[in-house]
């Protein structure tokens, strides 16, 4: 019984058996206002494009990720309510798949694009093959 108790406690961390905390109005207001501010900031940054394309892309990506995390916490309650640890694990495995899927696709397809002949060279090559 002692042995099993020990193991059980170890697994307990995953469940985190405390009662779900009710979400509060304050959380929703924080989430909503900061989302609106971040959205407006991203919008204004693009309309008054003040930097080069790649700097802008990095700024916008940071703004989007910040809003993502804020909504995860304040709207989706990832860190409270109902098995938070397990929800976080599933979220992280989803993010891993997404990074591999999106990053890998862009990487491979750009690489293939870079190796393509341009249209003129392609035509010349095809003509030369015909003449054989």
């Amino acid at each position: 019984m002692n042995v099993s108790n020990n193991k059980h406690e170890h697994l307990d961390v995953l469940v985190s058996s405390h009662q779900p905390e009710p979400s509060t109005l304050k959380n929703y207001i924080i989430g909503f206002t900061s989302s609106v501010i971040l959205t407006m900031f991203a919008y204004l940054a693009v309309t008054h494009q003040f930097a080069g394309k790649w700097v802008m892309i990095i700024i916008l990506a940071i703004l989007a990720m910040t809003q993502f995390i804020i909504q995860l916490i304040y709207f989706l309650h990832i860190n409270q309510e109902f098995a938070p640890r397990l929800k976080l694990i599933v979220l992280l495995s989803m993010l891993t798949v997404v990074v591999i899927l999106v990053g890998g696709s862009i990487w491979i397809m750009n690489n293939l694009n870079g190796r393509m002949m341009d249209t003129k060279a392609m035509e010349q090559y095809m003509n030369s093959q015909n003449s054989l």
């Binding site: 693009v46 494009q49 892309i57 916008l60 989007a64 909504q71 709207f75």
Partner: peptide
């Protein structure tokens, strides 16, 4: 709404960048 953050940023905002 979370998915829309990324549509807004990647499709629309990145799309109009010069």
């Amino acid at each position: 709404d979370v998915v829309w953050i990324f549509i807004f940023t990647i499709v629309y905002l990145f799309g109009v960048l010069k």
